[in-house]
Design a protein around this nucleic acid. Structure first.
Lengths: 206, 206, 206, 206
DNA sequence: AATGAATGAGCCTTCATTCAT
DNA sequence: AATGAATGAAGGCTCATTCAT
């Protein structure tokens, strides 16, 4: 059945997020999913292929969601205002997945995995870069350091998503869990904050 | 001899940064350091204790450097302007170490390590938080989301430090290596950018 | 359908010959035959039973071919001259099968398989022994070491059949493949050589 | 200690001879040798490297023994008479090793192992080929099929060495074991037989 | 008749650690 | 102070087989 394959992907996402790719054994994964460990080989071929399948699955389901907004208008200011909540939603819809990606992206091992991860992350990053470039060219934005502005934007989200529960507790004082209302709370704070920071940074003062 | 212990710490820092704590075997480490693998147990007791020793060593050497600046004046604006380059220097002085810390801080394993890492990271974070709080209280800063402003500040640095060589190449187009002049380049860009973003964000417009 | 069963036997014979019984997995076999791996259990019950079925099939089909020649005359010299090409043809008609048998016959595992293999091989060996014994008894052959003469006779054929392609290439300089004309070449050389050796060895000199 | 390494080699030779390379697990081997299975990795690196080490060890110790005899005279007849017992002794000194080599040489897997085996076997084969070629050139031997004469010679020894205990019992009626007196018996019979066959085959009749 | 799914046992290898010297 | 030797546990993976359909 295909929902066993799906169950493996879900459990893998959870365990990879909590303990890392190296820190998760296929025995742990199989036990957690209530299956024989040979099923991982059966469905995916290997632990590494499972990872690739996870990226494939998650990124394909996410890319469909956001397409239109940034094409609807050519005004960089409006495009930015539209992209920020859209991106935040996209990331918060699958926080564990991005926690995994960012951690693995910081390693210098398993080059094939690295390539896949970089491809996935950069696809989204480039949406933002385009707006910045257009805005600066058109004189709507100040002449900022585009690379580092992107770093700030994505760094903010990454930082929030990547921190372990323990770090969150001690840094933000507030739980960061699977609770839906909790998520809505952060979503709104994050969107407001990012818009505020980006606009203050990019827009020329009257 | 003590420089053998030091050599182990240095090699461990390098390998942990590149391949992660789990991804680095003590065999690799011993081979890289040109010693017998029993030396790790001999000097540190275990792989985990070695990690703790690494944190101990690196953080103690860094904390001494920055103490005075933030006490010298009570003006939050000036204190911020002083803290930013000081912090950036502190981080860039040991980029590998922070790359390790941030990655491990995103895991939910080995609670004892987690605690040590959180302690180390938060000690620095709190310097920044204090300035923010004072500034807002004194009305010199706008009433921003302090937690998320911190996240943005540290997220920017983390993002820059954590990305793998491959990610750097593809995201920023520029190498990020051990080259000294390269480091100076990034140091200046980063300080300028952070000050600009923070001031635009925090300072009320005339 | 029965030709699927036959296809499995054929592919099994090929793979066992190339990689040995242990070295061939039923996965490889099923894939090579383009079937589901459950078919092996389905048709044969188990991998070992498949082997037995292979022996059954090949040896039964071969035994029918050669019966008459050795009964037609009582002269050992003529019987020998008739048996040699007949045996050579029998072996060369199925070189892979004998390659398998001889290899497995050199093991000391799976006693049941061993018994079956020994039965099959000895049935043919005994035809030769009988001629030798009769010839010596009748004074037509010299009083040779019958056991070792048999060993020489069968050893020659076995050696030729068993060597891997790589060994053949390097030992005989000539390919030993499925090519029909190639086979005819070896068949004639082998018959001539064996007759020459045996006659020189067995017949008293004038 | 190095005699543990030696013990592993000895046990491996025994088990490989009895059950084949594939049919012997490193668990069995370690248990048989009374060690932890990690020692195989420790001493040899891998199961395959252990095999290579076995070949290295056995063949190096054997090559030294026989050098002089075939150089002492240029008469092919005498050289043959000297080489036969010398070769037989060489092979019977390590029957298990050659049983392994011949079996593995009949496979078409693990090309690196194949190469090593072929090298080892051919080195000895070529001593014999040279005598044959010289003898024929000098007109001392009949114009025989040199390749197949070699096959007959080595096939005889191989056949005797390779058969499993069960096959021996049923084919030769006599045990073929580690018993020293038993070995001496076969050694003499084999030398006599081979000389007789080869001389009858090669020497022109008066 | 035939198959995809599933399993438990076993494979080889590497892990961090400890021990005797 | 330092090391080669040794270990038990765990790693990812493949094995032959069975089951429900």
């Amino acid at each position: 059945m295909q929902n066993r394959r799906r169950a493996l992907l879900d459990k893998a996402e959870f365990l990879f997020a909590e303990h890392g790719f190296e820190g998760t054994s296929i025995r742990d994964l199989a036990k957690e999913a209530g299956m024989n460990l040979a099923m991982i080989s059966y469905y995916f071929g290997s632990k590494e292929k499972l990872f690739e399948a996870l990226v494939e699955d998650r990124s394909s389901s996410l890319l469909e969601k956001v397409k239109a907004p940034n094409e609807s208008t050519s005004d960089p200011v409006q495009r930015l205002a539209a992209l920020v909540p859209s991106l935040v939603d996209r990331w918060l819809a699958n926080p564990r997945f991005y926690r995994i990606l960012y951690r693995e992206a910081s390693l210098n091992s398993r080059p094939e995995l690295q390539r896949i991860i970089a491809d996935t992350l950069l696809r989204q990053v480039n949406e933002f870069r385009k707006i910045l470039q257009d805005g600066v060219e058109q004189g709507r934005f100040r002449e900022v350091d585009i690379d580092l502005t992107m770093v700030t934007f994505y760094g903010t989200i990454t930082q929030l998503l990547s921190a372990s529960p323990q770090m969150h507790q001690r840094m933000l004082g507030r739980r960061w869990g699977d609770d839906v209302s909790e998520m809505a709370h952060w979503r709104n704070r994050l969107v407001d904050h990012l818009l505020q920071v980006m606009q203050a940074h990019l827009l020329t003062r009257a």
